[in-house]
Structures are given as C-alpha cells and as structure tokens.
Design a protein around this nucleic acid. Structure first.
Lengths: 133, 133
DNA sequence: TTTGACCTTTGACCTAACTCCAAGGTTTAT
DNA sequence: ATAAACCTTGGAGTTAGGTCAAAGGTCAAA
C-alpha cells in the first residue's frame, strides 16, 4: 500500500500526474485512508506501470484507456482486436514518419543548394526559394 | 490592394489566421482604410506566401519570424546563417523521425509476436508484454 | 510542541496554431 | 431601402498531457 507520493516516486512521475490519470479514468486508487489520503495497492502500481509502458510505446492516453478496458476483461476480446489496435497505431506512426521524411528531404535539398558561405545573404538561394517557389 | 477576406481566400486561409499572424508579428497590413479595414498590398501577399511556404516546409511560426527578419535585411546576414537554420531544422526533424521509427519498430515487434487470431485475448502476448515487460 | 514534509481540493496555466463567438459598424447588391 | 455579406474588436475555446499555486488539513521526528 502506497501513498501518492510514494507511488509517484517509485515510478518517477509527479503526484499531480497520478491525480490527472485518476481524473481521466486511467488509474483509481484502491481506497482512501480515513483522512482522505489516496491509498494505492500493488495492483494499482502494476496498472500504472502498464500505463507508462504503453505511453512509452507511443499510445495516447485515450488509446491506453481502451487497452485497460481490454485488460480488465480479456476474455471478452479476441487477439485480433488487440493486434489490430497495435497495427493501426504502427501505421499511424508510419504515416507521420513518411510525412516528416518528406519535409526533411525538402529541407536538405534547400540546404544543399545553398553555398553556406560567409558572404551576405543578398543572393541566398534558400530565401529566394521560399520567396518565389 | 486586398481586404482581409480577399487575401485570405486567395491563399486558402481564414481571415482569422491573418489576424492571428498580425497579432504575432508575422504579417502587418500595409495600411487601414478610413473605416479601419485592413488593406494588404502585393508585398504583403508575397510575404504571406513566404510564410505559408515556410510553414509547409516544417518551420514553426517563431522560426518563420526569424526568417522574415533575415529576409527584411538580407545584407546583414550570411548565407551560412540561413543554411545553419535550415540544417538545424532538418536535424531536429531527423531526431523526431528516429524516435518515431523506434516506436514503430517496437509496435511492429509487438504485433508480430501476436497470433492475431479470433480466440480470446486471455493469453494475448501483447497485453502480457505491456503488463510485465 | 512545533516545524517541515506530506496530503487534500479547486482551478488556473502552459505550448502551438489557430478557431470561434458576440456585438456592433460598413459595404454591396438588389 | 434593406438585407446579405463583409469588416472590426476583445476574449474564450480547442487538443494533449500535464504542471503549478493557494489554502488548508495531517503526520512524523526532534
């Protein structure tokens, strides 16, 4: 059984973050002390680690809420459901990666065309391109 | 000379966006009509296109403010300054790309390890991994 | 017993880049 | 002449994921 500060420290997050997760339905403490302090169980700690791991994998908090629902009643779901979520997220990431790769290539092209010398930028090809492409 | 709605339509943005750019020091209309309407010149239109092009290349509005400063007095800057900015931005993008690529690979690994079948998720390897990695 | 570290709640604030709304004035088309 | 379509300002709201502050209650050690 942990108080909020203890669990937070153990998982290297701030107490406020745990309160935020609670408010958003991701992690409810097992009970409260008679004075109203949040008391977290080992299960809660495990759930928090689940949340943090999923977050580190790139899931949003609302994705994680969904994963926790599945976790909570695994037998109601098929492997295909879970795999589908993960693949959808991987695809989503890939789409963003492609987009950023295109941007990076454009920028690199811009940079490569520039002399990059110490002379004044009056004839800078980069600025010219941005001005009138 | 354009009124705000005309310039906005010509560049496929909303009037509010132009007001927002003005408030943030990116684009000041050349003057105001006697009744207070913003009046944009051709130079303003060109500057807006510069802003939109830079944005499409992945520059933030505060990057763009800097680029506009350079544009406004090109002779005070060296090509190397401009090239440096572009390369820094390309590197920044690359860093994000690398990070997202790692995430995507982790997700793909997770998905690949899952049977993905229609049977219940009670023994789902994805959930197991998130629970206890 | 008193000080300091903890806990509570409510609610504001942060970044980025808009987007929308309300209340009112102006211009344009019919 | 009047209605539609435009313009003005100020200020609030959006998304995501926290982060902080204020005002107060609680707990542990010296």
């Amino acid at each position: 059984m942990y108080k909020i500060g203890e669990l937070a420290a153990a998982c290297k997050v701030k107490p406020d973050t745990l309160r935020f997760y609670e408010k958003n339905g991701l992690l409810n403490p097992a009970n409260r002390s008679d004075k109203g302090y949040r008391i977290y169980s080992d299960d809660d700690a495990q759930q928090l680690r689940f949340i943090l791991r999923a977050k580190a994998m790139g899931f949003s908090l609302s994705d994680i809420r969904e994963l926790l629902n599945i976790e909570a009643s695994r037998s109601d779901w098929a492997c295909a459901d879970v795999k589908g979520m993960v693949e959808a997220k991987a695809l989503e990431l890939q789409t963003k990666i492609d987009e950023m790769t295109r941007l990076r290539d454009s920028l690199q092209e811009l940079a490569d065309a520039c002399c990059g010398g110490p002379e004044s930028a009056i004839h800078c090809s980069i600025l010219d391109t941005l001005e009138t492409k």
